[in-house]
Write a protein that binds this DNA or RNA. Structure first.
Lengths: 172, 172
DNA sequence: CTAGGTTAGACAACGTGGTTGTCGAAATAG
DNA sequence: CTATTTCGACAACCACGTTGTCTAACCTAG
């Protein structure tokens, strides 16, 4: 991270003059692109009846999945302790996005499932994301956006998205 | 955010078959690209003598700037209270990345400056970012990467990068 | 069938980073 | 000179993560 402290590099034409970007700016702009989408998503979700959802909740819903899961397994997927996952679920349960049902086949397990409201938020999220993408297609042109997405896939090859976002940014 | 709950949309050929990407995947991959760069940056920084730096610290150093700043102003730039900014600075001061000097022209102010060690971490960060970018240039080809960066700039037009990352993800 | 180990979830104590509120000292406006 | 603003410090509090412990339920050997 450095704009003022940039390593001006060995001779030749500066990178910017060749239309290139300093490495740190690529990182910053990737994050900013993500953040623009997420901020707009949640502004629109708030307008559409989901004012209490936060960026993290999308990752949680994704980790819960259509078949439900347990607090332990959720903690594993999110990279946090089962207790932390449980506390997050407490909040989402209060907001009406998930329910805990007891598993008849294993009396210890409490299976967490999305409620109708939870599914509704996911359907709306998908639509809003697609609308943002559609605006990007206008801004870049559809061919250019397809190339952009293809390159993005090349650079981030994994099939599985890392969901262990909570605490990732933290200070220690 | 939805893979299983995708809105399959009205008729025609599915977006994937046209080489397009669902909107939510664009967001996820932008974040993943950022995260790949940041994770590699900090792994390499740790190897080069800066094992205690965290993703957030880069934003803090950026907000401090080459001329130094005060806790109040830093809090403003990071979007947190002056007290929170002060606590963060306490930690960085203990680690030897910043010093607080009293301002002879205003006895209330304590100007925070980067130490030599702080500047060293920025110089190394810039170099590491550029190395990662260079590998991306190999993966995509230099022309394709330039186009990618150009499109990224189009999509994230702002001059100023938002530094108010702490708490942005939080749950309430 | 039972004994021992494992697993899920609840509960408590704690740490870290954020918040607000208050205060005194120093600067500034009138 | 006085009144107001601003900076930094201190304290109380809160949100959200952590670890540790405990009980109930399941599973597997013998």
């Amino acid at each position: 991270m450095s704009s003022e402290y940039r390593t001006e590099a060995r001779g030749e034409m500066p990178a910017e003059a060749r239309g290139e970007m300093p490495g740190y700016e690529v990182a910053l702009r990737l994050f900013q692109g993500f953040r623009l989408m997420i901020d707009e998503l949640h502004a629109e979700l708030a307008r559409q009846g989901h004012p209490d959802l936060r960026p993290m909740h999308g990752f949680v819903f994704q980790a819960i999945g259509p078949d439900g899961t347990t607090a332990v397994e959720l903690g594993r997927r999110l990279g946090v302790s089962k207790q932390a996952a449980g506390k997050t679920l407490d909040g989402l349960e209060r907001l009406g996005y998930v329910v805990r049902e007891s598993d008849p086949r294993d009396a210890r397990r409490k299976v967490v499932r999305l409620t109708e409201r939870g599914v509704d938020s996911l359907v709306r999220s998908a639509r809003i994301f697609d609308e943002i993408r559609a605006r990007w297609a206008v801004a870049l042109g559809p061919d250019r956006l397809r190339a952009f997405e293809s390159d993005l896939r090349t650079l981030t090859p994994s099939e599985m998205f890392p969901l262990d976002v909570p605490g990732w940014f933290g200070s220690d």
